[in-house]
Structure formats: structure tokens, C-alpha cells
């Protein structure tokens, strides 16, 4: 018990005194995860838009596949990207393995299906007739996209946040493609593991607190968004 209390107070001290090493890890985590969720957002949302306005054979099957297969196991994403980025792999010449860029690629692979799935269902809740109405007023595809984005902004926002929540708290892919290099690719989750095996429980707990805080905040905001949209439409 005293280990926990001791570690906890040390952890709080690290956080409150803005310990550089601790904050480097936190900032890197945010950079990587924000960038990958933004890239996933751009890919996922535009794909979702085209999926929801274009008709093609097999669309229904594809949509149900997207809706059910939203989550790819992080280690699978990690393995896939590792194999691709190996020095002697297909994309080896870019020398991306064990860099933050590799982590962004892997996390993008993880977050895109999640964001795509939520965005598709958001756009699909937008009535077909509404699209006809906008076209009937002279809208082109860009107009349509912007208006749908605006009308569904809460769901889209929650899609990106769900993506961010997933990537900032995943460990498998980051560890595999980033290599957990101190000061370079060590993020909150992998740092927690490393510090635990080094016996630095105070640091591990500090990182744990941050992670917990982030995921709790995201969940809180998502719940809030859901409640607001229920109020508006219900």
C-alpha cells in the first residue's frame, strides 16, 4: 500500500512540477495521436461521404462490413506496418521504421476504420430526400459535403475523438513500429510499460494518470455530445 501512496505522490509531483522527461513523453503522445487522428479524419470522413452519396453494386455488403469490422486489433496493424516498413520490405527505402512517422502510419490504419464507420452512419442518418432537396437548390458535391459535415458535426467530432481515444491508448502498434525509443518514439503507453519493468512505478503511475485523464475526458465529451444530439433530434 505504501508503495502505491509513495508512487502516487511522486507521480503528482512530476506532473505538477512539469518534469521535462515526463512532459516530453506526454507531448509526443499528443502530437502523434492528434496527427494520426486528423489524417484518419480526412481519409475516413471523405470516404464516408462518397460511400453515402454514391450507389454501386455491393455497397450494402461493404457498409455492413465497415460497420462490423470497425476495430482492427492494434498488434495486427503494427505487424502489417512493420512488415511493410522493414528496411528490406516494400517501403524500406523510406527508412521509416522506428520513427514517429511509422507510428502515425500505424495509428492512422487503426483510427481510419473507426472514424469511417461512425462517419458513415452519421452521413446515412442524413435523409436521402435532404440530399435531393439540396441538389434541387443547385448544390454541387462540395456544397453537399460541407453542408452534411456541418449538419452532422457533432457525430463527426465524436468520430474523430473516438479515433483519438483509441490511438492514444493503444500500445501494441506503437511498440512494434516505434520501437519505444526514449525521447523519440516513447509515448505514454509504451513508457508505462518500460517504467514498470524498470521498477519506476512513480513514473509509470504518472503516465497512467495522464492516460486515464485523457480517456475519461474523451468519454465525458462523447457522452455530452450524445446527450446534446438526443436533445436536438429527440
Amino acid at each position: 500500500m505504501d508503495v502505491i501512496i509513495e508512487s502516487l505522490s511522486k507521480a503528482l509531483k512530476l506532473l505538477l512540477t512539469f518534469d521535462k522527461e515526463t512532459y516530453d513523453v506526454i507531448i509526443l503522445s499528443f502530437k502523434v495521436s492528434i496527427l494520426s487522428s486528423l489524417i484518419s479524419g480526412i481519409i475516413g470522413i471523405s470516404l464516408a461521404f462518397f460511400l453515402s452519396i454514391k450507389d454501386f453494386p455491393g455497397k450494402k455488403i461493404l457498409l455492413s462490413f465497415i460497420n462490423t469490422g470497425m476495430a482492427m486489433p492494434p498488434v495486427i496493424a503494427g505487424l502489417l506496418i512493420t512488415i511493410l516498413l522493414w528496411r528490406n520490405g516494400i517501403l524500406g527505402s523510406f527508412e521509416l521504421l522506428y520513427t514517429p512517422y511509422a507510428m502515425i502510419i500505424a495509428q492512422t490504419l487503426l483510427a481510419t476504420p473507426i472514424i469511417l464507420g461512425i462517419s458513415v452512419s452519421a452521413f446515412q442518418s442524413f435523409p436521402d430526400k435532404f440530399i435531393l432537396q439540396l441538389l434541387g437548390l443547385g448544390a454541387n458535391k462540395v456544397h453537399l459535403f460541407l453542408i452534411m459535415l456541418k449538419e452532422c458535426k457533432l457525430s463527426i467530432l465524436s468520430a474523430i475523438m473516438a479515433g483519438f481515444g483509441t490511438v492514444i491508448s493503444e500500445v501494441g502498434a506503437s511498440l512494434m513500429v516505434g520501437g519505444n525509443i526514449k525521447g523519440y518514439t516513447r509515448v505514454l503507453t509504451t513508457a508505462t510499460i518500460t517504467e514498470t519493468s524498470k521498477g519506476n512505478f512513480d513514473l509509470a503511475i504518472a503516465y497512467g494518470i495522464i492516460l486515464l485523464f485523457i480517456t475519461l475526458t474523451i468519454n465525458l465529451i462523447l457522452t455530452k455530445i450524445q446527450q446534446t444530439s438526443v436533445k436536438r433530434h429527440g
Binding site: Q133, G136, G138, K150, E151
Partner: peptide, 14 residues
């Protein structure tokens, strides 16, 4: 489409 306009039963305002 630039020469027409349409109104449905549902108002469908943004």
C-alpha cells in the same frame, strides 16, 4: 438544375 427549384413535404431546413 440551376433553372428549377423544389419544395418537399418535409421542410428540410439546414
Amino acid at each position: 438544375r440551376q433553372n428549377i427549384a423544389i419544395v418537399f413535404q418535409e421542410n428540410m431546413l439546414i
